[in-house]
């Protein structure tokens, strides 16, 4: 177990507003962290800090050497699907291959190795047959698998997913968590979600982000804890999908 990212007393936000207030967390290579919290609480801001999309006002984000100097991208990222234009003329294969471009990426050819890597990833996620489809022809769940393939095609050490369970049905959600469980053997995973009920049986630890961050080193949290951290989340459980209900318990 080694540390991949170390975030220390980070203050961050947009246009001078502080959204993350003194946030610290260490991420280890076998972690599977569920990030929960209310909308506007800073979940996405935290991801953006780790991804380097915004610079913190104060504090530090340190990466282990593999993450810093790899020629390939060593942080995989699955963005929220509503930021993506579904009519864009691009095939599944090209989307997945783009996950291998890093830095300048001059000269417009993918190597044979790149292509094999993309094919292997599509097989692993179980969507080899979609390879030649235009993304406009996919369902929400299929699209999510394509974006997941793009995120992991470069064999990252850390995989970050931003609400992967929106726009998809329960069956896909179960499938997704099974895939993530498998992937967790090779990489650390951070998953942002609004659905506390289902996720808590898959993740190992839970981080509750609401301006500040409270880190639970287990996947069970109580309603009282949520309330005291000012995390107004409804505890709901859905039908047949296996899950652990966040039960009331005393410490």
């Amino acid at each position: 177990m080694s540390k991949v990212v170390e975030i220390q007393s980070v203050f961050a936000g947009y246009n001078g507003d502080i959204i993350l207030n003194d946030v610290s967390i260490d991420i280890f290579d076998d972690d599977f962290i569920g990030v929960i919290g209310p909308n506007g609480g800073g979940k996405t801001t935290l991801l953006n800090v780790i991804l380097g999309l915004i610079k913190p006002y104060k504090g530090s984000v340190k990466f282990c050497d593999d993450l810093k100097f790899g020629r390939n991208n060593k942080i995989g990222y699955l963005p929220q699907q509503n930021n993506i234009d579904k009519k864009f003329p691009i095939t599944v294969k090209d989307v997945v291959l783009s996950g291998l471009i890093y830095g300048v990426g001059f000269l417009s050819r993918y190597s044979k190795q790149d292509k094999l890597k993309a094919e292997e990833t599509l097989r692993k996620i179980g969507i080899s047959d979609l390879s030649k489809y235009a993304i406009g022809e996919l369902s929400g769940g299929q699209m999510q698998k394509v974006l997941l393939s793009r995120a992991i095609v470069s064999s990252p050490r850390l995989l970050i997913l931003d609400e992967p369970n929106t726009f998809v049905d329960n069956q896909f959600e179960g499938e997704l968590y099974e895939i993530l469980n498998e992937l967790n053997k090779e990489m650390a995973i951070i998953i942002v979600t609004h659905d506390v009920g289902t996720i808590s049986s898959y993740v190992k630890t839970i981080a509750c982000v609401n301006r500040t961050l409270h880190y639970h080193k287990s996947n069970i949290i109580t309603e009282e804890q949520l309330a005291s951290y000012n995390c107004p989340i409804k505890l709901i459980t859905h039908g047949e999908v296996p899950h652990t209900v966040l039960k009331k318990h005393s410490h």
Partner: peptide, 15 residues
Amino acid sequence: LFISYDQEYAKTHKI
């Protein structure tokens, strides 16, 4: 093509 399709994602790849 990469940037046109998903510019945020391209940024995370240091492009």
